[in-house]
Nucleic acid binder design. Structure first.
Lengths: 339, 339
DNA sequence: AGACTTACTGTAATCGATTACAGTCGGCGG
DNA sequence: CCGCCGACTGTAATCGATTACAGTAAGTCT
């Protein structure tokens, strides 16, 4: 591999001139240098540059699970901005394990100029203890509860949940079930709160047997739905707090032979590319996933580019309700106590 | 940030001893060094280490689209092996653009010890011209046609296609359509060849109007299916050569009001996590996606760990047919020429 | 006791870039 | 012709680790 020394020698100049040429500064011998670079196929050694400058031209992204369509889309958004900024992405997959997440933060922080984290839980012992990191961090979907405040990109969890519940209420549903995520996570907590609030606002009774806190996984939604179906007095509608739990719930309903929306209406949080292909097509709360990643990346890159002074910002993206076929009017005979 | 010098000073030893301790070599003053490291919160500077050793402890992964569930699963497999090997992942998303792919190869090659590429096309001008890279490369789903042979992890495209077509033939279908990907890509070419071969083996006529070459995208499958449906003499079954084209085809069938499998049977290549939730559940050729990523990573990491001598290997993973509800017996009155 | 081995240890060179600092050169005004 | 300014150039220090090489101390054997 050719080094900057080789180029300098070939062009008959000093390494300083080559370096300056590379940095876009005017140099009298630009032509000769360009020719030498070309002939030698020279490419600067990134490690040497990083060592000298203290920068990495790379950012880290840590997600719980790449195969979840939401996180995949998030990564895509980050990529778009990173590409534009000429920055590379180090990807960390925590496999929904806080210990892994923590380990990844430690590893990636040594190799990047900043990190975007879509965290599992709001607070853990040392886990996601980002305070000790002396580098820009952006949270996705996480209220900051650290000593050190950081930038974050949220979605309107309360508003989205409200839209979903009000939609169901407008259809005449009163026995509305909730399948939520861990209350230790921001989306879990906010969507849960949004559900309870909206129910109360509409004078709908919240039957606590119909409020199941699961784990944001497909199996969690599946098991929760089975439990709900075993209730004496079944719900006529259910709101599932994320994409894969919704799929799990649908699978459970399929297994017990329940018809959607005739027997039960279903609304999910987060859209799915194939939501229209499900029978019936799924009614969901949609958010701009790719944009959320892009927004996080922009926030991070601003900090990396030197804006360390201004106070932490919190961006909240709007959501919308997409009504498809999985929600329908409550049948009058529904929701009767079978006990 | 504390450096190795600081640690050495604090422990009253030379930097060499600290470095050796870090490398796991026996050192008499291990305790003092460990204490100093702890107190100072020392973490080695990765750039300096990389510069000195010429290694990066990182590998690159380049895929056309992270949001495609197959590639997401592939990445997950790579992650698993990378984690076990203590190696980080640089992720490149080419957005299905050969120029981007090429640019990513150039960028990632300077920051990693090896690259896994799930390429777009088999050959392009300089694109994916991997010969000039003096580093380990592993191809996923790509026959090597370079001057320089490289390791690769394939799936049994021919066998998988054969399973699908034979399944349809066994159900009595004779007018079987094919929605394929670009013949410039390995999966595109092999699945196309597998389709033609199997049709011939079973003495089934291949109506070339029923063989549509699309682009492996959802819209490609969608448009192809519409075109097929407009044919005078419609197919009674269709095989779509990848996951998202299958979804596109299903969307098109939905739009024209065709019933699956009554009006037309559908088989796709590559399973989908939600395939059982589609109505009807989708019959597919399934491959071990995560394992394919893991296998690619193992191959690459072996090369990175010094095995540069042995000849390139090609691993081919087996596939299986998963029969669900989207395929059914051909109705006798089907396939009649409506012209 | 002396020779030799074993097992560490420290010094200093090195990886390949960037950049502060101190020139050098040419042109222009007076 | 001189002095000064602007624009570039080169030398050499530097980033923070690893490691070849040359010790050195302690232990072992005769």
């Amino acid at each position: 591999m050719a080094t900057i020394q080789d180029v300098a020698a070939a062009a008959g100049v000093s390494t300083a001139s080559v370096s300056r040429h590379l940095a876009g500064q005017p140099v009298r011998t630009a032509d000769a240098i360009a020719r030498a670079i070309d002939e030698l196929g020279y490419q600067p050694n990134i490690s040497a540059r990083n060592l000298r400058t203290g920068r990495h031209a790379a950012i880290g992204v840590i997600v719980p699970d790449v195969t979840n369509p939401f996180f995949a889309a998030l990564i895509k958004g980050v990529q778009q901005e990173a590409r534009a900024a000429g920055v590379q992405i180090l990807l960390g997959n925590s496999d929904e394990d806080p210990a892994q997440e923590n380990a990844l933060i430690g590893e990636l922080s040594q190799r990047t100029d900043g990190i975007i984290i879509a965290p599992l839980v709001e607070e853990g012992r040392s886990a996601t203890d980002v305070a000790r990191l002396r580098m820009p961090v952006v949270f996705v979907d996480r209220e900051s509860r650290e000593r050190r405040e950081v930038d974050r990109v949220m979605v309107d969890n309360l508003g989205g949940t409200r839209l979903a519940v009000e939609h169901l209420a407008a259809l005449g549903h009163t026995r509305i079930a909730f399948i939520g995520g861990p209350l230790t996570s921001t989306p879990g907590r906010q969507r849960h709160a949004g559900f309870l609030d909206t129910m109360r606002e509409h004078d709908l009774m919240v039957d606590e047997r119909l409020v199941v806190i699961a784990d944001f996984r497909e199996s969690g939604g599946h098991d929760a739905m089975h439990a709900l179906w075993r209730e004496q007095s079944r719900p006529t509608a259910v709101f599932a707090a994320n994409n894969v739990m919704t799929l799990g719930a649908l699978r459970a309903l399929d297994e017990v032979g329940a018809r959607v929306p005739d027997d039960i209406s279903v609304v999910g949080f987060d859209d799915l590319s194939f939501a229209t292909l499900l029978r019936p097509p799924l009614t969901v709360v949609r958010r701009p996933e790719v944009e959320q990643g892009a927004a996080a990346a922009r926030l991070l890159l601003d900090r990396v580019d030197g804006d360390t002074g201004s106070p932490p910002v919190s961006v909240t993206l709007a959501v919308e309700l997409v009504v498809r076929g999985s929600t329908g009017v409550a049948r009058p005979d529904d929701g009767i106590d079978r006990g």
